[in-house]
Structures are given as structure tokens and as C-alpha cells.
Design a protein around this nucleic acid. Structure first.
Lengths: 336, 336
DNA sequence: TTGAAAGCGATACCAT
DNA sequence: ATGGTATCGCTTTCAA
């Protein structure tokens, strides 16, 4: 049904080899007029080579897999866009997979992607890259770029941001405003980037001579609902004057909790988020948060891949991108 | 490098035909013990057939393409999730493409997807499906499902919501609250679903004996910024007491404009959105909006595809899903 | 400067 | 109940 290289060859009165050579720009030794004739026939029929057949023989499919926990989270949507943009410039396409933070689903997808012969997989936010899991990935014999995972011991291609600094900056900001009872919403599965943010929180506390109180740190799902639950406890039982939410979604949850408890932000409680998703700017009050270059993370992951694949090298390096405190209206000095 | 069907056949002392038959569960006539032996060898080596080779011969790649304008818009992220969920249950994978509402990019992607031999393409929100474009799609010889496009004349597989009803419901709600000067933020490219919403707005006005004033309808980019610009004009120059924003993103823009002009929602101006993206619930005040079953749209699109592909039939039908008015806190009676 | 033929990894038809 | 072989559409090596 679809037009093939054979058809083109026949119409142009040349062999399929010639057509192939021309299509791949390996036609140094082919006559100018032959090239022109073939090219025009290709154009005329809008012929495009079958990527499957091509991939089968070259082992280059120009596809990569992207594993995100949930595309519905604006953070991952933004990363996805960065990846797609970065890749499409190099004529790569992306298979999108939602892992729902389920490691089994993740492994299942890796298998699926392998049988599709993707040239690599970008993994955004696995549960945690344990030594076991890392070994597993290595065994797969595909290139990986892993996002958001710090681990000085495990060596892999990765893009991360300076999560520690983010946590420090956020907490320092609250301390400088005069807060002393600062809650923190972390999570329970031991995600290393969140742990880094927590370390930043602790170190800032220490630097300002404030005693670390583990009752003020609660674990939550990193969702709006999770943040709301956590904040409810923090505000009602611990009477914090400020909350550092380790991502913006949970910060939105804090807003929701504040409404339920009749507390005002920032008068009664200050909030700092993390990520700076676009909606942070449109909350009321506008959210003070730690900005990470989300789109850029996706672009870098893509660029990293292009580099690795083009140079046929397994670099093992982690790029660290910077973060920045964006002060908006959700933070103020505590009332006396 | 990777293990192939040949390797399995050799290890099991059978022909590749046998292995193939077993893998595809066409082994009615094959000895129990042979099956067991082969199966265990397959499992032992974690062998999975090369999807490229398979697709090359069967013309079934179990992949589909999904074209969305911008994955960063929560509306499309939600649709994407629905599509991916619906498809992955049937072992289909999805190529994600951002068209940025650029018809050239869209056509380019369709070509790319064709050469990857996707079994079909789900197109979410093209500029507009004109007769020309529709003809173009038909010529491609792939199955399409088109989302969000009403057109009784053009026949294709489609999923839409009752946009007219949504526009009517939104406007009626405002009228019943006592508003008479109701602005509407539409868009300029003639998207048919937005036009339907506008028709609903006009019909509601008429039904309530309110004269339609075209100065109250402004075109905008369907983004937060676009909505903000449009609302600025509507509020400052036209002095409307209420605004019907034809999507939630522009409604958020209205909130922003209200802040800039020092107006309060809903005391000074009421706002109704459209879509009910998850953030609508977390705006302050919470957004009154028209809910469409976004995730479900994606699922249905996927289901439609599965049906079409499994039955090898080109159904040409449009499913219409219902919408619903969700009253929250962004609407109130106008002050006297 | 061009073409013939082998082969990528699977499926499917026809034998046995 | 199992195997041989053509074939899918292309790239690549070698020969002419």
C-alpha cells in the first residue's frame, strides 16, 4: 500500500542501493543528474523510508522513552516539554510513559521500551535509585539519563538541581523574617532530592541557632491532598508560624488547609514552596518558592542523550543546575 | 548483542517457527512439553521479540501518535494521561508530540508518525479542521481520532463535549444571578469548540431577553496571559459585571487582571471558566466553571482506537460527552 | 558511477 | 506436531 524504496527505484530506473545512498546523503559518487532525478521522484511521491525497516538494520530508531510518575503534575509536564523540544530538533521522538511511581510498572515499561529498541530512556523520579535498581538498569544495556537523583556513589548520567541549597534558602528566608517554629512537609519514601531539601532545612536551622524538632517535619504524599493533610496537623497541633513545603503541589495543599482552619497566609502562617510551577504565580497570595529551571532540566536531559548517542560513549556525569529563591506574597514576619 | 528468536530456537532445539508460534499463542498443535521447554527458555533469558521486526511484517506496531498543542496546559496533560492509560491496558504505546498549534508542525509530525508506522493518530485541538485539512488527513491513509472539533459536515472519528450547553449553562448562571453586562473571552482562530461555547453564550442571552453586544466579546490567546489582557480591556473599558472565560486558563488571567485593577472577585466582577482543570479548585476564590470530563475524553479516544483497530473498520462517528456547571465562589450577584 | 545480494529479526505459508 | 523458506523494507558490502 505505502510506497517503498523499490517503487522509487523502479520509477527512477536505478537500483534501490542508489536510492538508499541518496536518501542518506552518502552520494559522493553518484551522478548529479541521477541524484536530481531521484530526489524529485522522492519529493513528488512524498516518499519517506519505513523507520521500522531502517531501525531493524541500523539499530538506530531515533526514539527514546520518557518515564515520568504522572504527566498531570505540571512539574513533569514542563520537563516533558523540554525533553520533547530538545529531542525533536534532532529528529528524535519520545514514547511517553506514566509510571505512577510504581517500580513494577517502571520495570515493565523499561522492558516494553527495550523491545521497541529505543536508544535510551530518561527516567524522571523513580521511587529511589537504589543500588539494586541501578544494577538492574545497567544490565538492561540501554543508555539512561536519570533526573533528580543525587548519589555520589552511584555513577550514571543525571541531571539534578541543587536541592540542598533550595532547602537552605527557603528556610533561611523564613528565619530572617523572624520565624522560629517552622514546619516542613517532606515525604516518606526516601526520595533523595527531597531528603536533600530537608538537609538544607536542617542546616539553615542550625546555622541560625534554632533547635531542630523532628515533630515539625511530617511526611506526605507530594500532592495537593497530601500537603493539605500534613499542613492540617502542622498548623492545628504544632502551631507553626511558617511551613516549608518541599514542592509546590504540597504548598497548594497548605493553602487549602489554611482555608479550612480559617488561617490567613501570610498573616497567620507563611508558606514557601519548591519548584516554581507556573501556577505558583497565580495563587492568592502569590507563592514564595524556590525556582528550579524545570524546562531546562528536560532540555539538558535531551541534550545529554544526543551527546551520548552521537559520540557513542557512556558518559557518567551528573549535571547540577542552580536554584533561586523567588520571594512573592506568601511569606511575612510572624505576628508577635 | 540482544538475544533473538534464533538463539531461543537453537537452545530449545526447535525451529524458529515453533518459537514464534508459541510466543503468539498459536500453539494448538504443538506438544505440551515442547511448549513448556521453550517457554522456560524464553523466561530464563528474559527474551522479548524485537518489535521492529515484528511490526515490519505484520504492519502492527502497537503504537499510536498523540498530537497536543502543548502538554504544559493541564487540560492536555489530563487528556494525555487518559490516552496513555487507555492504551497501555492494550499494550499500545504513545508517541507524544507538541504541535504548538502550528499547522506546519502538525503536518510534519504526521509525516514522522507515518514513517514510524503508528497505527493511528489522535489529534487534540488542531487549529481548525477545515475541509482542506480533513482531505489531507484522509489522504494519509491512517486512522485518526480528532478531539474537540464539531462539524456535522465533516465525517470522522471524534470525541467532543457539548460545548454549546456549557456556554449556555455558564451564561445562564450569570444571568440568573442578575448580571446583564457579561463579557466573554473567546479566541480569534475560529476554533469550533470555542465558537460553540460562544453560541451558547449568545443563545442564553437571547433567551433571557438581553441584547447581544459584540463589544463585550473579545478574542484572546487561550492562555493565562491572553486572558489577562482581554479581561483588562473588558473590565476597564466596558465595565462588565461578569466575565465568561471560555477556558480555565483565561479565567486565571481574569483573576490576574482583577488584581491589577484592584477589583475583587466576585464582589466587583463574577467569573465563570470552562474545563475544570484541577487547579480551578485551588484558586482563591475557587473558580465557578463548566466541568468537562477531561480524563474521560482521553480514555474514550483510546477506546475508540482500540475498537477501530481491532475491528479493522473506519467508523465515522462523533461521541458527545456531557458537561456540567460547577458552582464555586467566583460568582455572585452584582452590587446595585 | 551503479547494482546484486546478503542480512537485520520476526511472521506466515506450505511442506513434511 | 514441527520445520524450511519467502518476505517485510531497508542498509551495507562487494563486485562490476
Amino acid at each position: 500500500m505505502s510506497i517503498t524504496i523499490k517503487d522509487i527505484a523502479k520509477k527512477a530506473n536505478v537500483s534501490i542501493t542508489t536510492v538508499s545512498l541518496i536518501m542518506n546523503n552518502k552520494c559522493h559518487n553518484i551522478g548529479e543528474d541521477t541524484i536530481k532525478r531521484v530526489r524529485s521522484i522522492i519529493a513528488e511521491h512524498n516518499y519517506r523510508p519505513n523507520a521500522l525497516a531502517r531501525g531493524l538494520i541500523t539499530n538506530k530508531t531515533r526514539t527514546i522513552g520518557l518515564l515520568v510518575p504522572n504527566i498531570t503534575n505540571p512539574f513533569f509536564a514542563e520537563i516533558t516539554k523540554g525533553v520533547e523540544d530538545g529531542l525533536s530538533e534532532h529528529n528524535y521522538n519520545v514514547f511517553l510513559c506514566n509510571s505512577y511511581n510504581d517500580i513494577h510498572k517502571e520495570k515493565m515499561y523499561i522492558n516494553v521500551l527495550k523491545e521497541r529498541f529505543v536508544e535510551g530512556v530518561i527516567i524522571s523520579s523513580t521511587n529511589t535509585v537504589t543500588q539494586d535498581y541501578y544494577t538492574y538498569l545497567k544490565e538492561q544495556g540501554i543508555a539512561f539519563v536519570i533526573l533528580d537523583r543525587h548519589d555520589s556513589q552511584l555513577q550514571y548520567n543525571g541531571i539534578v538541581v541543587d536541592d540542598w541549597k533550595g532547602g537552605y534558602l527557603a528556610t533561611q528566608h523564613l528565619l530572617q523574617l523572624g520565624h522560629r517554629k517552622i514546619g516542613c512537609i517532606a515525604e516518606s519514601k526516601g526520595l533523595c532530592n527531597i531528603n536533600e531539601r530537608l538537609r538544607g532545612y536542617q542546616d539553615a536551622l542550625k546555622a541560625h541557632g534554632v533547635l531542630y524538632d523532628e515533630k515539625l517535619v511530617v511526611s506526605a504524599d507530594l500532592t495537593i491532598e497530601g500537603g493539605c493533610q500534613a499542613a492540617l496537623g502542622l498548623m492545628a497541633e504544632q502551631n507553626v508560624t511558617a511551613i516549608f513545603a518541599t514542592n509546590d503541589l504540597t504548598a497548594i495543599g497548605v493553602y487549602e488547609a489554611a482555608i479550612q482552619l480559617g488561617k490567613r497566609i501570610p498573616e497567620d502562617v507563611s508558606v514557601v514552596g519548591f519548584d516554581d510551577i507556573s501556577f505558583a504565580h497565580y495563587l492568592s497570595p502569590k507563592l514564595t518558592t524556590i525556582r528550579q529551571p524545570i524546562y531546562e532540566i528536560g532540555r539538558r536531559a535531551a541534550a545529554n542523550f544526543i551527546y551520548v548517542l552521537q559520540n557513542n560513549t557512556f558518559v557518567q556525569s551528573t549535571e547540577v543546575l542552580d536554584v533561586e529563591l523567588i520571594i512573592r506574597n506568601s511569606t511575612a514576619s510572624p505576628r508577635l
